[in-house]
């Protein structure tokens, strides 16, 4: 694959080792604008570590990550976020002691410096943005509830909403439907479809049904490396993938 095409994210030769163990080994990944890419793979394949590396939570030992022309490996976490990368964690991480409204408000991308936060005012623009996102994530009628009173699925949506309000160009979701009911999964798949009209999305997921519903392309990881890449049908037919999932 060449770099002549207009990729939003290019990852090349990415490697990280923990005490000699290479959790991610010489991995390359190219994401196009507004594509939904799903990473699948057995446990311990290094999927979450890849997201950690892109968003700066873990520092790469080697390799390059370029996002909209910027080199992310040199930037701090909050700078990476401000450049347009949003990250959702595996377990819903929301602020239990704040209301749904406040959760979204804190995530609103204004007043991010100390002085900015002190001077921040809840004006109509903020209120409108919060309501709009709340509508999208099915929580419009829950705005005044404390976040810890939400159901597990609602918490997952809230965290997705907290990313949406930041208007990132790239959304990274780590197992967004884990622990959800079938109905909630359906709704989440719809939600992602809406989101991807103007975002690029990188998802880690195990649920093949869900992957089939949303994915443009699928990347299969195994032992820190890319095993196969292409449409879901393509990777399912790949003998290497079959070997990893069914072999041994």
């Amino acid at each position: 694959m060449s770099t002549s095409r207009d990729f939003i994210l290019t990852v090349e030769g990415l490697t990280v080792s923990f005490d000699g163990f290479k959790a991610v080994n010489d991995l390359s990944l190219y994401l196009e604008h507004n594509e939904i890419r799903v990473i699948i793979g057995p446990n311990g394949a290094g999927k979450t570590t890849v997201l950690d590396l892109i968003c700066g939570k873990t520092r790469a030992t080697d390799g390059a990550i370029r996002f909209k022309g910027q080199d992310l490996t040199r930037m701090k976490e909050h700078q990476i976020v401000r450049s347009g990368v949003g990250r959702k964690f595996q377990n819903p991480s929301i602020y239990d002691d704040l209301t749904v409204f406040e959760n979204l408000e804190v995530s609103y991308p204004r007043g991010r410096s100390v002085m900015g936060a002190l001077a921040f005012r809840r004006d109509q623009q903020v209120i409108d943005a919060v309501h709009e996102v709340a509508e999208t994530i099915f929580l419009a009628d829950q705005l005044d509830r404390r976040a810890d009173l939400l159901s597990h699925g609602q918490k997952q949506w809230l965290e997705i909403g907290m990313l949406l309000i930041q208007e990132p160009d790239l959304l990274m979701l780590d197992e967004p439907v884990a622990g959800m009911s079938v109905a909630e999964r359906k709704k989440t798949a719809e939600l992602l479809k809406v989101i991807t009209r103007n975002h690029t999305v990188l998802v880690i997921e195990h649920d093949m049904q869900f992957v089939g519903d949303i994915a443009d392309r699928v990347t299969v990881m195994h032992q820190g490396q890319v095993l196969s890449e292409g449409s879901l049908a393509h990777v399912k037919a790949d003998p290497k993938v079959v070997e990893v999932y069914l072999g041994h």
């Binding site: 968003c55 909050h78 401000r82 990250r87 991480s93 929301i94 602020y95 995530s107 991010r112």
Partner: peptide, 11 residues
């Protein structure tokens, strides 16, 4: 949730 705040763009 320190990490969530950090990954919401705050230093």
């Amino acid at each position: 949730q320190e990490d969530r705040v950090r990954f919401s763009g705050y230093d």
